[in-house]
Design a binder for these strands. Sequence first.
DNA 1: TCATGTTGTTTGATATAATGTACTAAATGA
DNA 2: TCATTTAGTACATTATATCAAACAACATGA
Lengths: 187, 187
Amino acid sequence: MKQIHEVVAQNLAAYRAKQHMSLDKVSKLTGVSKTMLSQIEKAESNPTITVLWKISSGLRIPLSALTSEVETKVDHIRREYLTPIDTGNEAITIYPYFPFDTKRGFELFVMEFDGKATFLSEGHYQQSEEYILVNEGELQLLIDREWHVIREGEAIRFQSDAAHTYKNATNTRLSLTVTVFYQEKND
Amino acid sequence: MKQIHEVVAQNLAAYRAKQHMSLDKVSKLTGVSKTMLSQIEKAESNPTITVLWKISSGLRIPLSALTSEVETKVDHIRREYLTPIDTGNEAITIYPYFPFDTKRGFELFVMEFDGKATFLSEGHYQQSEEYILVNEGELQLLIDREWHVIREGEAIRFQSDAAHTYKNATNTRLSLTVTVFYQEKND
DNA sequence: TCATGTTGTTTGATATAATGTACTAAATGA
DNA sequence: TCATTTAGTACATTATATCAAACAACATGA
């Protein structure tokens, strides 16, 4: 969950170190001021795409060499860093365990509904597929004007391009594990 | 040779049109202001990497979907659009026919030397390979403290990571076609 | 030892990225 | 026809990206 400009900072600094280049050298090569380069490396600046392009182009490396995060072997998502998404509805909480990442092309989150809560998803504007596991409670799902009832321990899979509605008709808590796959990959 | 922010403009506008989304909708999805989106689409703004990331991430598309140029079938490089690179030396002119492009990983240019002109290349800070064809005149090339003489109609290939020097020892014009391949690919 | 480079940071000035609000024009519907 | 919504643009304001020049810290060498 590193900020993109921090990723750039890290990548640029690492590259420059590896090549044993000074800020001055990179500045000459890319036409970007020494000051800016220094600030970018310290993540104190949010470079414009034009500046990033000048850097990648001047150094003859792909843009993605600056923007793509170096993969760690393991990613342990700790409770304390999991900040719920604001859905605008008190009764519904979403925990983004693995938010959408372009490299993987999917996202994985947990949705929790209080009793009698309803949530409308507008649809994803992409070829996308949604996989839902019901951890606890009972889910009613409206897809294409048809209601489906998925009980605790069950699961459902559907094309989620179009709008669909989640409903907890019971008075007890409903908890779902949701995975959404999108089409386009790479970065 | 389109500017990067023009590429982004085109890609974003095209994507939004394809998905039949309004600026408002994209703004809600991405958390980027309608105004900014409009300006980006009109290439009136140079978005920061953070804004681009918010867009790509909010729309669930890769960054490269915004930054990579849509390929045309044919690219005719016309004389009138070929602006020589300033080498800091009046006697040497470089015509960048196909400047470095991250997708291809190479560049192709023509170098022209007046009589008795010398040019030092600092080396490319990358695994790179240089291919030189002598179109006209005679080239003397210093690689790794060894001089090579390449005559009109001949060619040479070498690892160009390290510094090397081009020299026109004659009094007549020297013209080269140079291709440089770099390692890293993709974007 | 002093002078001269080299490397990265700080400073101050300017351009412009980014936002929210207000506005115009077009589409929709009763 | 008039009112209401929707879609994009224009405007004013704030935040900040970008640069050139000055600076400090350290190395280099004569």
